Amino acid sequence: EADPRLIESLSQMLSMGFSDEGGWLTRLLQTKNYDIGAALDTIQY
């Protein structure tokens, strides 16, 4: 079963217009401990 923190973070990022095609966003959020800010910083640079 998916981590509730992942579901919450992923749904927030999907609502911002990101896609999780191929699961890349799920993996990114997992490596950033479900921190949306850290994930966005990684995507920006």
Score class of each variant (00 low, 15 high):
residue 35 D to G: 03
residue 45 Y to W: 10
residue 35 D to M: 05
residue 9 S to I: 07
residue 8 E to A: 14
residue 30 Q to S: 09
residue 6 L to K: 04
residue 22 G to K: 07
residue 14 L to I: 11
residue 9 S to M: 08
residue 42 T to I: 12
residue 11 S to T: 10
residue 22 G to E: 08
residue 28 L to T: 02
residue 11 S to W: 10
residue 20 D to V: 03
residue 26 T to M: 06
residue 23 G to E: 05
residue 12 Q to W: 11
residue 38 A to V: 08
residue 24 W to Q: 05
residue 32 K to S: 11
residue 26 T to E: 04
residue 16 M to H: 05
residue 17 G to I: 03
residue 15 S to E: 12
residue 21 E to C: 13
residue 1 E to F: 14
residue 5 R to H: 07
residue 36 I to K: 02
residue 11 S to Y: 13
residue 18 F to T: 00
residue 32 K to L: 14
residue 45 Y to S: 15
residue 44 Q to E: 12
residue 5 R to L: 09
residue 29 L to E: 01
residue 38 A to Q: 10
residue 44 Q to W: 15
residue 16 M to R: 07
residue 30 Q to F: 09
residue 42 T to K: 08
residue 30 Q to L: 13
residue 20 D to Y: 02
residue 42 T to F: 15
residue 39 A to P: 02
residue 5 R to M: 08
residue 43 I to N: 02
residue 2 A to W: 13
residue 9 S to W: 07
residue 21 E to Q: 10
residue 15 S to D: 09
residue 35 D to R: 04
residue 17 G to T: 02
residue 10 L to C: 03
residue 41 D to S: 11
residue 43 I to T: 03
residue 35 D to W: 04
residue 1 E to Y: 14
residue 3 D to E: 09
residue 21 E to M: 09
residue 27 R to V: 09
residue 41 D to F: 15
residue 8 E to M: 12
residue 6 L to H: 05
residue 42 T to V: 13
residue 34 Y to V: 01
residue 16 M to S: 03
residue 34 Y to A: 03
residue 37 G to A: 14
residue 40 L to I: 11
residue 33 N to W: 06
residue 32 K to F: 10
residue 11 S to H: 11
residue 42 T to N: 08
residue 35 D to K: 04
residue 19 S to R: 10
residue 4 P to M: 11
residue 4 P to G: 09
residue 6 L to Q: 04
residue 36 I to F: 05
residue 21 E to R: 09
residue 17 G to D: 01
residue 16 M to V: 04
residue 23 G to K: 07
residue 3 D to W: 05
residue 36 I to H: 02
residue 29 L to C: 02
residue 43 I to L: 12
residue 29 L to D: 01
residue 42 T to G: 07
residue 19 S to W: 07
residue 24 W to N: 04
residue 6 L to S: 04
residue 7 I to Y: 13
residue 30 Q to T: 13
residue 36 I to Y: 04
residue 41 D to I: 14
residue 40 L to A: 03
residue 10 L to N: 00
residue 38 A to R: 09
residue 1 E to G: 13
residue 26 T to N: 03
residue 38 A to L: 12
residue 10 L to F: 04
residue 10 L to A: 01
residue 8 E to R: 10
residue 42 T to D: 14
residue 13 M to I: 06
residue 12 Q to M: 14
residue 36 I to V: 14
residue 17 G to Y: 03
residue 36 I to S: 03
residue 14 L to S: 07
residue 19 S to F: 08
residue 29 L to K: 00
residue 9 S to G: 09
residue 39 A to K: 01
residue 21 E to D: 12
residue 22 G to R: 07
residue 41 D to N: 12
residue 31 T to I: 15
residue 2 A to C: 11
residue 4 P to V: 10
residue 4 P to R: 11
residue 23 G to S: 05
residue 34 Y to C: 06
residue 26 T to I: 06
residue 24 W to P: 00
residue 6 L to I: 06
residue 2 A to K: 14
residue 31 T to D: 13
residue 8 E to K: 14
residue 15 S to M: 13
residue 37 G to Q: 15
residue 21 E to H: 12
residue 13 M to P: 00
residue 25 L to Y: 00
residue 3 D to K: 05
residue 27 R to N: 08
residue 27 R to S: 09
residue 5 R to E: 07
residue 15 S to N: 12
residue 36 I to G: 01
residue 37 G to I: 14
residue 45 Y to L: 15
residue 12 Q to F: 15
residue 38 A to I: 08
residue 7 I to C: 10
residue 42 T to P: 01
residue 44 Q to T: 09
residue 20 D to E: 03
residue 19 S to L: 10
residue 31 T to Y: 14
residue 14 L to V: 09
residue 1 E to Q: 13
residue 23 G to V: 02
residue 1 E to S: 13
residue 29 L to S: 01
residue 12 Q to I: 15
residue 20 D to I: 03
residue 23 G to M: 07
residue 9 S to Y: 06
residue 44 Q to G: 10
residue 7 I to F: 12
residue 13 M to A: 03
residue 27 R to I: 09
residue 30 Q to I: 15
residue 41 D to W: 12
residue 38 A to W: 07
residue 19 S to A: 09
residue 10 L to V: 06
residue 20 D to N: 13
residue 34 Y to W: 05
residue 31 T to M: 15
residue 37 G to M: 15
residue 28 L to G: 00
residue 41 D to K: 15
residue 17 G to F: 03
residue 17 G to R: 01
residue 14 L to A: 09
residue 10 L to Y: 04
residue 14 L to N: 06
residue 2 A to G: 11
residue 19 S to K: 12
residue 38 A to Y: 06
residue 23 G to F: 08
residue 39 A to M: 04
residue 4 P to Y: 12
residue 33 N to R: 08
residue 32 K to I: 09
residue 43 I to V: 05
residue 10 L to K: 03
residue 26 T to Y: 05
residue 7 I to S: 10
residue 42 T to R: 07
residue 9 S to P: 08
residue 24 W to A: 05
residue 5 R to D: 05
residue 18 F to L: 07
residue 24 W to H: 05
residue 11 S to Q: 13
residue 18 F to P: 00
residue 6 L to W: 05
residue 24 W to K: 04
residue 8 E to Y: 14
residue 7 I to V: 13
residue 15 S to G: 13
residue 8 E to H: 13
residue 9 S to H: 04
residue 4 P to D: 10
residue 42 T to A: 15
residue 5 R to Q: 09
residue 14 L to K: 11
residue 11 S to G: 12
residue 4 P to I: 11
residue 27 R to F: 08
residue 44 Q to K: 14
residue 25 L to T: 01
residue 4 P to F: 11
residue 5 R to K: 10
residue 44 Q to C: 14
residue 26 T to A: 08
residue 33 N to H: 09
residue 25 L to F: 02
residue 25 L to W: 01
residue 44 Q to R: 15
residue 38 A to S: 09
residue 7 I to E: 11
residue 28 L to I: 07
residue 13 M to Q: 00
residue 9 S to R: 06
residue 42 T to Y: 15
residue 22 G to P: 01
residue 31 T to C: 15
residue 40 L to V: 07
residue 18 F to Q: 01
residue 38 A to D: 07
residue 36 I to W: 07
residue 12 Q to P: 00
residue 33 N to S: 08
residue 35 D to S: 10
residue 27 R to A: 10
residue 22 G to H: 08
residue 24 W to Y: 07
residue 36 I to D: 01
residue 30 Q to W: 08
residue 1 E to C: 10
residue 15 S to H: 09
residue 22 G to Y: 08
residue 19 S to C: 10
residue 21 E to P: 05
residue 32 K to N: 09
residue 29 L to Y: 01
residue 17 G to M: 03
residue 12 Q to G: 05
residue 20 D to W: 02
residue 31 T to G: 11
residue 11 S to E: 12
residue 22 G to C: 13
residue 9 S to A: 14
residue 9 S to C: 10
residue 13 M to F: 07
residue 35 D to H: 07
residue 20 D to P: 02
residue 15 S to P: 03
residue 11 S to R: 15
residue 20 D to M: 03
residue 35 D to A: 05
residue 4 P to Q: 12
residue 22 G to Q: 08
residue 40 L to N: 02
residue 40 L to F: 06
residue 16 M to F: 09
residue 30 Q to D: 05
residue 26 T to H: 04
residue 41 D to L: 15
residue 8 E to L: 12
residue 6 L to F: 07
residue 40 L to M: 09
residue 13 M to E: 00
residue 13 M to T: 01
residue 45 Y to N: 15
residue 40 L to R: 04
residue 37 G to V: 13
residue 26 T to C: 04
residue 14 L to F: 14
residue 16 M to D: 02
residue 29 L to N: 00
residue 39 A to T: 13
residue 18 F to W: 09
residue 18 F to C: 06
residue 25 L to C: 04
residue 39 A to D: 01
residue 9 S to D: 01
residue 2 A to Y: 12
residue 2 A to V: 13
residue 35 D to T: 03
residue 37 G to K: 15
residue 23 G to Q: 07
residue 45 Y to K: 15
residue 32 K to P: 01
residue 10 L to S: 00
residue 14 L to C: 07
residue 31 T to F: 14
residue 17 G to E: 01
residue 24 W to M: 05
residue 5 R to Y: 07
residue 38 A to F: 05
residue 43 I to R: 03
residue 12 Q to V: 14
residue 15 S to F: 08
residue 16 M to K: 06
residue 26 T to D: 02
residue 13 M to C: 05
residue 39 A to G: 02
residue 41 D to E: 14
residue 43 I to A: 04
residue 33 N to M: 10
residue 32 K to Q: 09
residue 5 R to V: 06
residue 44 Q to H: 14
residue 23 G to Y: 07
residue 28 L to W: 04
residue 22 G to F: 08
residue 28 L to D: 00
residue 24 W to R: 05
residue 19 S to E: 10
residue 29 L to A: 00
residue 2 A to Q: 13
residue 19 S to Y: 08
residue 12 Q to H: 10
residue 20 D to H: 01
residue 12 Q to Y: 14
residue 33 N to A: 09
residue 13 M to Y: 02
residue 16 M to C: 06
residue 21 E to Y: 09
residue 41 D to T: 12
residue 2 A to D: 14
residue 3 D to Y: 06
residue 30 Q to P: 03
residue 42 T to Q: 15
residue 39 A to L: 06
residue 3 D to R: 06
residue 43 I to S: 02
residue 25 L to Q: 00
residue 42 T to C: 15
residue 43 I to G: 01
residue 19 S to I: 10
residue 21 E to S: 10
residue 37 G to R: 14
residue 33 N to E: 09
residue 33 N to P: 02
residue 7 I to P: 06
residue 28 L to C: 06
residue 39 A to E: 01
residue 37 G to L: 14
residue 2 A to T: 12
residue 26 T to G: 06
residue 17 G to C: 04
residue 26 T to K: 05
residue 18 F to V: 03
residue 36 I to M: 07
residue 19 S to P: 04
residue 43 I to P: 02
residue 18 F to H: 04
residue 18 F to Y: 12
residue 25 L to G: 00
residue 45 Y to T: 15
residue 11 S to N: 13
residue 43 I to Q: 02
residue 25 L to I: 07
residue 7 I to M: 12
residue 5 R to F: 07
residue 36 I to R: 02
residue 26 T to P: 01
residue 7 I to H: 10
residue 16 M to E: 03
residue 30 Q to Y: 10
residue 28 L to A: 02
residue 39 A to Q: 01
residue 28 L to P: 01
residue 2 A to L: 13
residue 27 R to D: 06
residue 14 L to G: 05
residue 7 I to N: 10
residue 32 K to A: 09
residue 21 E to L: 09
residue 41 D to V: 13
residue 13 M to H: 00
residue 22 G to A: 07
residue 38 A to K: 11
residue 16 M to P: 00
residue 3 D to V: 05
residue 37 G to C: 12
residue 29 L to M: 04
residue 2 A to H: 11
residue 45 Y to F: 13
residue 19 S to N: 14
residue 12 Q to E: 10
residue 34 Y to T: 01
residue 17 G to S: 03
residue 5 R to A: 08
residue 15 S to Y: 08
residue 25 L to A: 02
residue 33 N to L: 09
residue 40 L to H: 03
residue 43 I to E: 01
residue 7 I to K: 12
residue 9 S to E: 02
residue 27 R to G: 05
residue 11 S to L: 12
residue 27 R to P: 01
residue 6 L to G: 03
residue 12 Q to D: 05
residue 13 M to K: 00
residue 32 K to Y: 10
residue 33 N to D: 09
residue 22 G to S: 09
residue 17 G to L: 04
residue 35 D to E: 08
residue 39 A to I: 08
